[in-house]
């Protein structure tokens, strides 16, 4: 049974009927003015979410997402065997406090903006292996906490380049378990760290596109699949620049994504919102996947979706020291189970 689960070094196949039972999404005001706002469970009209600090606001977002996920999956806090969550802040502090408040056994995750799919893959593996009955996975990000962590104070008058991205203020969480309802989690492809020498922390799209391409190619080759096997292939937050690079890289390798590709960072904001090259952050993928894409799968608009969340694994110190930005991308396949 174990060798059937390990398709290759990087690709896993889940043997049991792993389901995404329910998910919750909470966002800040800017995302609430975007095209997908109606599908979010909770939208705050103030980036502070009524709290005293940005960090507390991010915690509130994650709290709301977790509550909605538990409610929609019909699983109570006591039934959650483990929480796999992360965020962009030092020591993934948002996740730590959320797990403390609910007393969830916690396995903190750091994958930068790839955390959503990293968490979902591992949650599915734990359920598949019989270690966990119900696993909660999620992630959060906040524009102001991320700017404080990685770039400049929010009110600083520095000029951002046009290819910069806008960290999504939001959180997404889901409950994974066996059977019942929701789309099935069938496969996961775990990414390797890819570093093509990009050093500009405002240029995340260029840095992350090779990682996404690497995971996509590995996935297709491991399973003998092509883009046509999926109704939708979506990346987490490559933005305008990164997604253009990705599509060309894939075409050069012999895979044409164009008709079925999209990027969560481009889906979460509308084109008239002032977000430069598109959304970024852990929440970019989580918010879109755990609302819009999940709804589409449940409604039958998609049969099979491959979500590739992309992360930039740099630190505020590393780029100041002139180091390049290493990136990673993790992918999870979600499949609608017909007749549900």
């Amino acid at each position: 049974m174990h060798s059937a689960s390990r398709i290759s070094r990087q690709t896993w196949k889940f043997q049991r009927d792993i389901r995404l039972l329910g998910a919750g999404v909470a966002t800040g005001p800017l995302e609430g003015q975007g095209p997908l706002a109606k599908e979010f469970d909770c939208v705050f009209d103030d980036a502070y979410a009524g709290e005293e600090s940005w960090e507390k606001a991010e915690r509130k977002l994650m709290e709301q997402a977790v509550q909605a996920a538990m409610k929609k999956s019909g699983v109570t806090a006591e039934q959650i065997d483990v929480m796999l969550a992360g965020d962009l802040l030092n020591q993934i502090i948002t996740s730590n406090y959320t797990a403390r408040d609910h007393q969830f056994p916690l396995l903190g995750q750091f994958g930068a903006c790839s955390t959503s799919m990293q968490g979902l893959a591992i949650a599915s593996a734990l359920v598949d292996g019989g270690f966990t009955q119900y696993a909660l996975t999620g992630c959060s990000s906040h524009n102001s906490t991320a700017e404080r962590q990685f770039r400049y104070p929010t009110e600083y008058g520095g000029q951002k380049p046009p290819y910069a991205q806008w960290t999504v203020t939001g959180a997404g969480a889901s409950v994974v378990g066996i059977g019942q309802n929701g789309p099935r989690v069938t496969h996961a492809t775990i990414g390797k760290v890819t570093d093509m020498g990009i050093k500009d922390p405002f240029d995340m799209g260029s840095a992350m596109a090779p990682a996404a391409a690497d995971t996509l190619v590995t996935h297709f080759e491991d399973l003998g699949r092509t883009p046509e096997d999926y109704d939708l292939i979506v990346t987490g937050d490559l933005g305008k620049v990164g997604s253009a690079i990705l599509q060309d890289l894939m075409k050069e390798t012999g895979y044409d994504l164009s008709s079925r590709y999209n990027d969560c960072g481009l889906m979460i904001f509308s084109s008239d919102q002032d977000v430069f090259s598109g959304g970024s952050g852990c929440a970019s993928s989580a918010v879109v996947v755990y609302s819009h894409i999940l709804n589409a799968l449940n409604a039958g608009r998609y049969q099979r979706v491959f979500v590739v969340a992309t992360g930039a694994l740099f630190s505020p110190v590393s780029f100041q020291q002139g180091e390049s930005i290493p990136c990673i991308a993790h992918g999870v396949v979600l499949e609608r189970v017909n007749g549900i």
Binding site: P161, P162, Y163, D195, M196, G197, I198, D203, G205, S206, A209, P210, K240, V241, A244, I245, S277
Partner: peptide, 13 residues
């Protein structure tokens, strides 16, 4: 790695 940076530059606005 040597040429990627230049290649990526073409996509930036």
């Amino acid at each position: 790695k040597g040429t990627y940076s230049k290649k990526a530059d073409q996509y930036k606005p």
